[in-house]
Design a protein around this nucleic acid. Structure first.
Length: 429
RNA sequence: GCGGCAGUAGCUCAGUCGGUAGAGUCCCGGAUUGUGAUUCCGGUUGUCGUGGGUUCGAGCCCCAUCUGUCGCCCCA
Protein backbone atom coordinates (compact mmCIF):
# COMPACT_ATOMS: atom_id res chain seq x y z
CA UNK A 1 0.00 0.00 0.00
CA UNK A 2 1.36 3.35 -0.97
CA UNK A 3 0.86 6.07 1.56
CA UNK A 4 0.48 9.71 0.56
CA UNK A 5 3.71 11.56 1.05
CA UNK A 6 3.33 14.53 3.30
CA UNK A 7 5.44 16.88 5.35
CA UNK A 8 6.37 15.76 8.84
CA UNK A 9 3.78 16.89 11.35
CA UNK A 10 4.41 20.34 12.69
CA UNK A 11 6.91 21.13 9.93
CA UNK A 12 5.53 23.46 7.31
CA UNK A 13 6.16 24.39 3.72
CA UNK A 14 6.30 28.13 3.33
CA UNK A 15 4.70 28.76 -0.06
CA UNK A 16 5.47 31.82 -2.21
CA UNK A 17 2.61 34.01 -0.96
CA UNK A 18 3.63 33.21 2.60
CA UNK A 19 7.33 33.51 1.86
CA UNK A 20 6.81 37.11 0.76
CA UNK A 21 5.89 37.92 4.36
CA UNK A 22 9.00 36.13 5.58
CA UNK A 23 11.25 38.10 3.27
CA UNK A 24 9.67 41.38 4.30
CA UNK A 25 10.11 40.38 7.93
CA UNK A 26 13.73 39.32 7.50
CA UNK A 27 14.66 42.48 5.61
CA UNK A 28 13.16 44.61 8.36
CA UNK A 29 14.91 42.57 11.03
CA UNK A 30 18.33 42.71 9.39
CA UNK A 31 18.24 46.44 8.89
CA UNK A 32 16.98 46.92 12.46
CA UNK A 33 19.85 44.81 13.83
CA UNK A 34 22.36 46.70 11.75
CA UNK A 35 21.03 49.85 13.34
CA UNK A 36 22.21 48.53 16.71
CA UNK A 37 25.53 47.17 15.51
CA UNK A 38 24.68 43.48 15.75
CA UNK A 39 26.47 41.15 13.33
CA UNK A 40 25.25 37.90 11.83
CA UNK A 41 26.55 34.50 12.89
CA UNK A 42 25.47 31.16 11.43
CA UNK A 43 25.70 27.94 13.38
CA UNK A 44 24.93 24.32 12.43
CA UNK A 45 21.40 23.04 12.90
CA UNK A 46 22.74 19.87 14.50
CA UNK A 47 24.90 19.92 17.62
CA UNK A 48 26.22 17.25 19.99
CA UNK A 49 23.40 16.25 22.32
CA UNK A 50 25.38 16.96 25.53
CA UNK A 51 25.60 20.64 24.56
CA UNK A 52 21.86 21.09 25.02
CA UNK A 53 21.67 18.91 28.10
CA UNK A 54 24.32 21.01 29.80
CA UNK A 55 23.08 24.38 28.60
CA UNK A 56 19.31 24.08 28.86
CA UNK A 57 19.19 21.82 31.90
CA UNK A 58 18.55 18.09 32.28
CA UNK A 59 15.20 18.48 34.00
CA UNK A 60 13.60 20.93 31.60
CA UNK A 61 10.72 19.81 29.38
CA UNK A 62 12.77 20.68 26.31
CA UNK A 63 15.52 18.24 27.17
CA UNK A 64 13.33 15.60 28.80
CA UNK A 65 10.72 15.16 26.09
CA UNK A 66 11.00 17.56 23.19
CA UNK A 67 14.39 17.14 21.59
CA UNK A 68 14.97 15.47 18.26
CA UNK A 69 17.93 13.42 19.41
CA UNK A 70 19.41 10.54 17.51
CA UNK A 71 22.54 8.51 17.14
CA UNK A 72 24.39 8.96 13.89
CA UNK A 73 24.45 5.41 12.62
CA UNK A 74 27.63 6.05 10.70
CA UNK A 75 29.85 6.86 13.65
CA UNK A 76 27.79 6.52 16.80
CA UNK A 77 27.74 10.23 17.66
CA UNK A 78 24.85 11.46 19.81
CA UNK A 79 23.33 14.40 17.92
CA UNK A 80 20.35 16.71 18.37
CA UNK A 81 18.48 19.07 16.09
CA UNK A 82 18.86 22.38 17.89
CA UNK A 83 15.81 23.21 20.03
CA UNK A 84 17.05 26.77 20.56
CA UNK A 85 19.93 28.92 19.41
CA UNK A 86 21.72 30.21 22.47
CA UNK A 87 23.56 26.99 23.30
CA UNK A 88 25.05 26.67 19.82
CA UNK A 89 25.91 30.34 19.71
CA UNK A 90 27.74 30.12 23.03
CA UNK A 91 29.53 26.99 21.83
CA UNK A 92 30.69 28.87 18.73
CA UNK A 93 31.78 31.89 20.76
CA UNK A 94 33.87 29.66 23.01
CA UNK A 95 35.25 27.51 20.20
CA UNK A 96 36.47 30.52 18.25
CA UNK A 97 37.40 32.70 21.22
CA UNK A 98 35.13 35.44 19.94
CA UNK A 99 34.59 37.01 23.32
CA UNK A 100 38.04 36.32 24.76
CA UNK A 101 39.32 39.89 24.49
CA UNK A 102 36.38 41.90 23.24
CA UNK A 103 32.64 42.25 23.44
CA UNK A 104 30.40 40.76 20.79
CA UNK A 105 26.94 41.68 19.57
CA UNK A 106 25.62 38.77 17.48
CA UNK A 107 22.42 37.61 15.85
CA UNK A 108 21.14 34.64 13.88
CA UNK A 109 17.95 33.63 12.11
CA UNK A 110 17.08 30.02 11.64
CA UNK A 111 15.12 26.84 12.23
CA UNK A 112 14.71 25.29 15.65
CA UNK A 113 13.15 21.91 16.43
CA UNK A 114 11.03 20.76 19.33
CA UNK A 115 8.76 17.74 19.39
CA UNK A 116 5.69 19.44 20.81
CA UNK A 117 2.05 19.07 19.89
CA UNK A 118 1.49 21.51 17.04
CA UNK A 119 -0.86 24.39 17.53
CA UNK A 120 -1.19 27.87 16.11
CA UNK A 121 2.09 29.63 16.85
CA UNK A 122 3.73 26.38 17.93
CA UNK A 123 5.38 24.07 15.43
CA UNK A 124 7.94 21.29 15.54
CA UNK A 125 10.17 23.12 13.14
CA UNK A 126 9.93 26.79 13.93
CA UNK A 127 12.08 29.82 13.39
CA UNK A 128 13.75 32.21 15.73
CA UNK A 129 15.71 35.38 15.46
CA UNK A 130 18.26 35.18 18.24
CA UNK A 131 20.17 38.20 19.50
CA UNK A 132 23.05 37.70 21.91
CA UNK A 133 25.52 40.09 23.53
CA UNK A 134 28.71 38.80 25.14
CA UNK A 135 31.10 40.50 27.52
CA UNK A 136 28.77 43.13 28.94
CA UNK A 137 28.25 42.86 32.69
CA UNK A 138 26.20 45.95 33.43
CA UNK A 139 22.47 46.55 33.16
CA UNK A 140 22.94 48.83 30.17
CA UNK A 141 23.08 45.99 27.65
CA UNK A 142 19.99 44.34 29.18
CA UNK A 143 18.16 47.62 28.74
CA UNK A 144 19.44 48.06 25.19
CA UNK A 145 18.23 44.60 24.23
CA UNK A 146 14.82 45.38 25.64
CA UNK A 147 14.58 48.79 23.98
CA UNK A 148 15.52 47.18 20.68
CA UNK A 149 12.34 45.15 20.86
CA UNK A 150 10.18 48.22 21.14
CA UNK A 151 11.76 49.69 18.03
CA UNK A 152 11.27 46.51 16.03
CA UNK A 153 7.57 46.34 16.87
CA UNK A 154 7.29 49.89 15.57
CA UNK A 155 9.31 49.06 12.44
CA UNK A 156 7.00 46.13 11.79
CA UNK A 157 3.90 48.24 12.38
CA UNK A 158 2.83 46.22 15.41
CA UNK A 159 1.23 47.48 18.57
CA UNK A 160 -0.21 45.95 21.69
CA UNK A 161 2.94 44.00 22.48
CA UNK A 162 3.55 44.39 26.19
CA UNK A 163 6.75 44.07 28.15
CA UNK A 164 7.00 41.93 31.25
CA UNK A 165 10.09 42.03 33.39
CA UNK A 166 11.55 40.18 36.33
CA UNK A 167 14.86 39.44 38.00
CA UNK A 168 15.92 35.93 38.91
CA UNK A 169 18.90 37.11 40.96
CA UNK A 170 22.07 35.08 41.20
CA UNK A 171 22.24 31.28 41.55
CA UNK A 172 23.02 31.45 45.27
CA UNK A 173 20.07 33.75 45.87
CA UNK A 174 17.84 31.55 43.81
CA UNK A 175 18.99 28.50 45.76
CA UNK A 176 18.03 30.12 49.06
CA UNK A 177 14.68 31.17 47.70
CA UNK A 178 14.13 27.76 46.20
CA UNK A 179 14.75 26.08 49.53
CA UNK A 180 12.29 28.40 51.21
CA UNK A 181 9.80 27.78 48.44
CA UNK A 182 10.03 24.02 48.73
CA UNK A 183 9.56 24.24 52.48
CA UNK A 184 6.55 26.48 52.00
CA UNK A 185 4.85 24.25 49.45
CA UNK A 186 5.66 21.09 51.39
CA UNK A 187 3.84 22.69 54.28
CA UNK A 188 0.80 23.00 52.04
CA UNK A 189 1.23 19.77 50.11
CA UNK A 190 -2.47 18.94 50.44
CA UNK A 191 -3.37 21.95 48.28
CA UNK A 192 -0.99 21.18 45.40
CA UNK A 193 -2.25 19.78 42.11
CA UNK A 194 -0.56 17.05 40.09
CA UNK A 195 1.61 19.44 38.09
CA UNK A 196 2.73 21.27 41.18
CA UNK A 197 3.66 18.07 42.95
CA UNK A 198 5.67 16.97 39.97
CA UNK A 199 7.47 20.31 39.88
CA UNK A 200 8.03 20.58 43.62
CA UNK A 201 11.43 18.96 43.48
CA UNK A 202 12.30 19.40 39.83
CA UNK A 203 11.50 23.05 39.25
CA UNK A 204 9.53 24.62 42.12
CA UNK A 205 9.88 28.11 40.65
CA UNK A 206 7.52 27.06 37.88
CA UNK A 207 4.75 26.30 40.36
CA UNK A 208 4.45 30.06 40.69
CA UNK A 209 3.80 30.21 36.97
CA UNK A 210 0.79 27.89 37.25
CA UNK A 211 -2.47 29.00 35.67
CA UNK A 212 -4.53 26.84 38.01
CA UNK A 213 -6.86 29.30 39.82
CA UNK A 214 -6.97 27.02 42.84
CA UNK A 215 -3.26 27.64 43.35
CA UNK A 216 -3.34 31.40 42.96
CA UNK A 217 -3.88 32.14 46.62
CA UNK A 218 -1.25 29.67 47.73
CA UNK A 219 1.23 31.17 45.27
CA UNK A 220 0.43 34.68 46.36
CA UNK A 221 1.53 33.79 49.87
CA UNK A 222 4.71 32.03 48.78
CA UNK A 223 8.18 33.41 49.54
CA UNK A 224 9.07 36.02 46.94
CA UNK A 225 12.30 35.77 45.04
CA UNK A 226 12.83 39.51 45.14
CA UNK A 227 13.08 39.35 48.93
CA UNK A 228 16.09 37.07 48.55
CA UNK A 229 17.97 39.29 46.12
CA UNK A 230 21.17 40.86 47.40
CA UNK A 231 22.24 44.47 46.98
CA UNK A 232 24.05 43.92 43.70
CA UNK A 233 21.17 42.05 42.11
CA UNK A 234 18.70 44.70 43.17
CA UNK A 235 20.98 47.44 41.84
CA UNK A 236 21.26 45.66 38.49
CA UNK A 237 17.50 45.25 38.29
CA UNK A 238 17.02 48.91 39.19
CA UNK A 239 19.59 49.90 36.57
CA UNK A 240 17.63 48.17 33.85
CA UNK A 241 14.38 49.74 34.95
CA UNK A 242 15.92 53.20 35.06
CA UNK A 243 16.84 53.10 31.39
CA UNK A 244 13.41 51.81 30.46
CA UNK A 245 11.73 54.57 32.43
CA UNK A 246 14.01 57.19 30.88
CA UNK A 247 13.01 55.89 27.46
CA UNK A 248 9.35 56.11 28.42
CA UNK A 249 8.88 52.41 27.81
CA UNK A 250 6.06 50.97 29.91
CA UNK A 251 6.58 47.58 31.53
CA UNK A 252 5.08 45.30 34.12
CA UNK A 253 7.15 43.57 36.76
CA UNK A 254 5.89 40.02 36.93
CA UNK A 255 7.39 38.10 39.85
CA UNK A 256 6.01 34.90 38.36
CA UNK A 257 7.92 35.37 35.12
CA UNK A 258 10.27 32.40 35.09
CA UNK A 259 12.22 31.41 32.01
CA UNK A 260 12.01 27.74 31.19
CA UNK A 261 15.70 27.31 30.53
CA UNK A 262 18.03 26.86 33.46
CA UNK A 263 20.78 29.17 32.32
CA UNK A 264 19.16 32.52 33.10
CA UNK A 265 20.11 34.83 35.97
CA UNK A 266 19.24 38.42 36.91
CA UNK A 267 17.17 40.06 34.17
CA UNK A 268 14.48 38.06 32.39
CA UNK A 269 11.82 39.55 30.15
CA UNK A 270 9.03 38.67 27.75
CA UNK A 271 7.16 40.57 25.09
CA UNK A 272 3.59 39.32 25.09
CA UNK A 273 0.50 39.82 22.95
CA UNK A 274 -3.07 38.75 23.61
CA UNK A 275 -3.84 38.41 19.91
CA UNK A 276 -2.37 34.96 19.35
CA UNK A 277 -4.27 32.84 21.82
CA UNK A 278 -2.33 30.46 24.01
CA UNK A 279 1.05 31.14 22.39
CA UNK A 280 1.26 34.84 23.16
CA UNK A 281 4.95 35.20 23.89
CA UNK A 282 6.49 36.75 20.84
CA UNK A 283 9.96 37.47 22.15
CA UNK A 284 11.73 36.51 25.34
CA UNK A 285 15.15 36.48 26.85
CA UNK A 286 17.39 37.54 29.65
CA UNK A 287 20.83 37.39 31.14
CA UNK A 288 22.87 34.19 31.31
CA UNK A 289 26.17 35.12 32.92
CA UNK A 290 27.06 31.57 33.92
CA UNK A 291 26.54 29.76 30.66
CA UNK A 292 29.81 30.45 28.86
CA UNK A 293 31.80 29.20 31.82
CA UNK A 294 29.45 26.28 32.35
CA UNK A 295 30.12 25.17 28.77
CA UNK A 296 33.87 25.38 29.25
CA UNK A 297 34.69 28.94 28.28
CA UNK A 298 36.20 31.80 30.21
CA UNK A 299 33.76 33.54 32.55
CA UNK A 300 31.86 35.88 30.26
CA UNK A 301 28.74 37.84 31.08
CA UNK A 302 26.05 37.48 28.44
CA UNK A 303 22.53 38.55 27.69
CA UNK A 304 20.17 37.91 24.83
CA UNK A 305 16.72 37.10 23.56
CA UNK A 306 14.90 35.11 20.90
CA UNK A 307 11.87 36.02 18.81
CA UNK A 308 9.38 33.60 17.32
CA UNK A 309 9.24 34.34 13.62
CA UNK A 310 5.98 32.46 12.94
CA UNK A 311 4.27 34.30 15.77
CA UNK A 312 5.46 37.71 14.66
CA UNK A 313 4.43 37.06 11.08
CA UNK A 314 1.02 35.96 12.33
CA UNK A 315 0.79 39.29 14.16
CA UNK A 316 1.86 41.22 11.07
CA UNK A 317 -0.94 39.56 9.12
CA UNK A 318 -3.39 40.17 11.94
CA UNK A 319 -2.59 43.87 11.88
CA UNK A 320 -3.05 44.08 8.11
CA UNK A 321 0.56 44.17 7.01
CA UNK A 322 1.08 43.29 3.34
CA UNK A 323 4.30 42.69 1.45
CA UNK A 324 4.53 44.58 -1.82
CA UNK A 325 3.24 42.42 -4.67
CA UNK A 326 6.22 41.62 -6.84
CA UNK A 327 5.75 42.45 -10.50
CA UNK A 328 8.19 42.37 -13.41
CA UNK A 329 8.81 45.50 -15.42
CA UNK A 330 8.24 43.71 -18.70
CA UNK A 331 6.33 40.64 -19.88
CA UNK A 332 7.71 39.46 -23.17
CA UNK A 333 5.13 38.04 -25.57
CA UNK A 334 6.32 36.23 -28.70
CA UNK A 335 5.10 33.82 -31.34
CA UNK A 336 6.94 32.14 -34.17
CA UNK A 337 10.39 30.62 -34.34
CA UNK A 338 12.26 33.75 -35.42
CA UNK A 339 10.31 35.82 -32.91
CA UNK A 340 11.18 33.46 -30.09
CA UNK A 341 14.87 33.60 -30.92
CA UNK A 342 14.73 37.38 -31.00
CA UNK A 343 12.72 37.40 -27.77
CA UNK A 344 15.50 35.65 -25.87
CA UNK A 345 17.99 38.25 -27.08
CA UNK A 346 15.67 41.11 -26.23
CA UNK A 347 14.94 39.71 -22.75
CA UNK A 348 18.63 39.35 -21.91
CA UNK A 349 19.31 42.82 -23.31
CA UNK A 350 16.63 44.38 -21.12
CA UNK A 351 17.97 42.52 -18.07
CA UNK A 352 21.43 43.92 -18.89
CA UNK A 353 19.83 47.32 -18.37
CA UNK A 354 18.55 46.26 -14.95
CA UNK A 355 14.95 45.53 -15.88
CA UNK A 356 12.98 42.58 -14.48
CA UNK A 357 11.73 40.61 -17.45
CA UNK A 358 9.31 37.70 -17.52
CA UNK A 359 9.82 35.89 -20.82
CA UNK A 360 6.75 33.96 -21.83
CA UNK A 361 7.40 30.24 -22.05
CA UNK A 362 5.10 27.51 -23.21
CA UNK A 363 3.64 28.96 -26.39
CA UNK A 364 -0.02 29.82 -26.82
CA UNK A 365 -1.97 32.46 -28.68
CA UNK A 366 -1.18 36.15 -28.41
CA UNK A 367 -4.44 36.45 -26.55
CA UNK A 368 -3.50 33.95 -23.88
CA UNK A 369 -0.01 35.38 -23.62
CA UNK A 370 -1.44 38.85 -23.13
CA UNK A 371 -3.67 37.51 -20.36
CA UNK A 372 -0.61 36.19 -18.60
CA UNK A 373 1.15 39.50 -19.17
CA UNK A 374 -1.71 41.27 -17.46
CA UNK A 375 -1.86 38.74 -14.66
CA UNK A 376 1.84 39.08 -13.99
CA UNK A 377 1.36 42.70 -13.01
CA UNK A 378 4.04 43.82 -15.48
CA UNK A 379 4.05 47.49 -16.38
CA UNK A 380 4.75 46.75 -20.04
CA UNK A 381 4.20 44.04 -22.56
CA UNK A 382 6.76 43.72 -25.31
CA UNK A 383 5.24 41.84 -28.26
CA UNK A 384 7.31 40.18 -30.96
CA UNK A 385 5.69 38.37 -33.87
CA UNK A 386 6.87 37.36 -37.32
CA UNK A 387 6.60 40.90 -38.69
CA UNK A 388 8.62 42.42 -35.86
CA UNK A 389 11.18 39.63 -35.97
CA UNK A 390 11.74 40.27 -39.64
CA UNK A 391 12.44 43.97 -39.09
CA UNK A 392 14.27 43.72 -35.75
CA UNK A 393 11.47 45.59 -34.02
CA UNK A 394 9.05 45.01 -31.18
CA UNK A 395 5.71 46.38 -30.05
CA UNK A 396 5.82 48.16 -26.70
CA UNK A 397 2.49 48.25 -24.93
CA UNK A 398 1.76 50.01 -21.66
CA UNK A 399 -0.46 47.69 -19.64
CA UNK A 400 -1.17 50.02 -16.76
CA UNK A 401 -2.19 53.32 -18.30
CA UNK A 402 -5.27 54.02 -20.32
CA UNK A 403 -5.00 55.74 -23.67
CA UNK A 404 -1.30 55.28 -24.22
CA UNK A 405 -0.83 54.06 -27.76
CA UNK A 406 1.16 50.93 -28.48
CA UNK A 407 4.43 51.80 -30.21
CA UNK A 408 6.66 49.89 -32.58
CA UNK A 409 10.31 50.38 -31.71
CA UNK A 410 13.68 49.04 -32.79
CA UNK A 411 14.67 46.43 -30.20
CA UNK A 412 17.70 48.57 -29.27
CA UNK A 413 15.40 51.42 -28.28
CA UNK A 414 13.17 49.39 -25.96
CA UNK A 415 15.19 49.64 -22.78
CA UNK A 416 15.52 53.40 -23.01
CA UNK A 417 11.81 53.89 -23.64
CA UNK A 418 10.82 51.62 -20.76
CA UNK A 419 13.30 52.99 -18.27
CA UNK A 420 12.41 56.53 -19.21
CA UNK A 421 8.77 55.85 -18.60
CA UNK A 422 9.35 54.02 -15.31
CA UNK A 423 11.36 56.98 -14.03
CA UNK A 424 8.64 59.42 -15.08
CA UNK A 425 5.93 57.50 -13.29
CA UNK A 426 8.11 57.23 -10.17
CA UNK A 427 8.39 61.00 -10.10
CA UNK A 428 4.66 61.40 -10.36
CA UNK A 429 4.09 59.34 -7.23
C1' G B 1 1.70 14.22 26.15
C1' C B 2 -4.04 15.22 27.78
C1' G B 3 -9.15 17.08 26.52
C1' G B 4 -12.88 19.67 22.97
C1' C B 5 -14.06 20.80 17.74
C1' A B 6 -13.22 20.17 12.50
C1' G B 7 -11.68 17.92 7.46
C1' U B 8 -16.25 18.00 0.48
C1' A B 9 -12.90 20.99 -6.45
C1' G B 10 -6.35 24.62 -6.52
C1' C B 11 -9.10 28.42 -2.98
C1' U B 12 -13.85 29.91 -0.01
C1' C B 13 -17.92 26.99 1.03
C1' A B 14 -23.26 24.50 0.33
C1' G B 15 -24.96 19.44 0.45
C1' U B 16 -32.22 18.48 3.68
C1' C B 17 -34.62 12.38 6.31
C1' G B 18 -28.76 7.79 4.44
C1' G B 19 -30.43 7.24 -2.19
C1' U B 20 -22.89 7.13 -5.62
C1' A B 21 -21.84 15.96 -5.31
C1' G B 22 -22.97 21.37 -6.21
C1' A B 23 -22.07 27.08 -6.11
C1' G B 24 -18.69 31.09 -6.30
C1' U B 25 -13.72 31.92 -7.51
C1' C B 26 -9.45 30.44 -10.10
C1' C B 27 -7.82 28.05 -14.50
C1' C B 28 -8.48 26.75 -19.94
C1' G B 29 -10.92 27.78 -24.81
C1' G B 30 -14.07 30.99 -27.79
C1' A B 31 -16.93 35.93 -29.23
C1' U B 32 -14.10 37.02 -37.97
C1' U B 33 -7.91 35.91 -38.82
C1' G B 34 -1.62 39.17 -34.11
C1' U B 35 -3.06 41.94 -28.20
C1' G B 36 -4.81 41.87 -21.45
C1' A B 37 -8.49 44.09 -17.82
C1' U B 38 -14.99 44.67 -18.27
C1' U B 39 -18.88 41.69 -20.51
C1' C B 40 -20.94 37.24 -22.82
C1' C B 41 -20.64 31.86 -24.17
C1' G B 42 -18.48 27.07 -23.33
C1' G B 43 -15.22 23.48 -20.52
C1' U B 44 -12.16 20.46 -16.67
C1' U B 45 -12.34 20.18 -11.76
C1' G B 46 -13.09 15.56 -6.70
C1' U B 47 -10.04 8.47 -3.90
C1' C B 48 -16.09 13.69 -0.04
C1' G B 49 -8.55 13.32 4.81
C1' U B 50 -7.35 7.80 5.14
C1' G B 51 -8.72 2.68 6.61
C1' G B 52 -12.38 -0.39 8.47
C1' G B 53 -17.64 -1.27 10.03
C1' U B 54 -23.28 -0.89 9.91
C1' U B 55 -26.76 -0.80 5.64
C1' C B 56 -29.98 -3.05 -0.26
C1' G B 57 -27.43 1.76 -0.35
C1' A B 58 -22.79 6.15 3.47
C1' G B 59 -20.25 12.86 2.15
C1' C B 60 -24.07 12.02 6.09
C1' C B 61 -24.28 6.80 11.19
C1' C B 62 -20.19 3.88 14.22
C1' C B 63 -14.81 2.72 15.23
C1' A B 64 -9.77 3.60 14.31
C1' U B 65 -6.13 6.66 12.26
C1' C B 66 -3.88 11.10 10.03
C1' U B 67 -3.97 16.34 9.74
C1' G B 68 -5.60 21.01 11.40
C1' U B 69 -7.68 24.00 15.22
C1' C B 70 -8.97 25.66 20.45
C1' G B 71 -7.62 24.92 25.55
C1' C B 72 -4.15 22.42 29.04
C1' C B 73 0.99 21.66 29.19
C1' C B 74 5.24 23.98 27.29
C1' C B 75 7.49 28.02 25.15
C1' A B 76 9.60 31.75 20.78
Amino acid sequence: MSQALQAVRGMNDILPDEAAFWELFEETVRSWLQGYGYRPIRMPIVEPTPLFKRAIGEVTDIVEKEMYSFVDGLNGEALTLRPEGTAGCVRAVIEHSLAARQTQRLYYIGSMFRHERPQKGRYRQFHQVGVEAFGFAGPDIDAELILMGARLWADLGLDGIELQLNSLGQPAERAQHRAALVTYFEGHADQLDEDAKRRLHSNPLRILDSKNPALQELCAGAPKLIDYLGEDSLAHFEGVQRVLRDAGLPFTIDPRLVRGLDYYNLTVFEWVTDKLGAQGTVCAGGRYDGLVEQLGGKTTPACGFAMGVERLIALIKESGGEPAAPAPDVYLVHQGEAATRLAFRVAEGLRDQGLDVLLHCGGGSFKSQMKKADGSGAAFAVVIGDDEAASGEAQLKNLREEGVAQRKLKVDELAEAIIGHLIDSDEEE
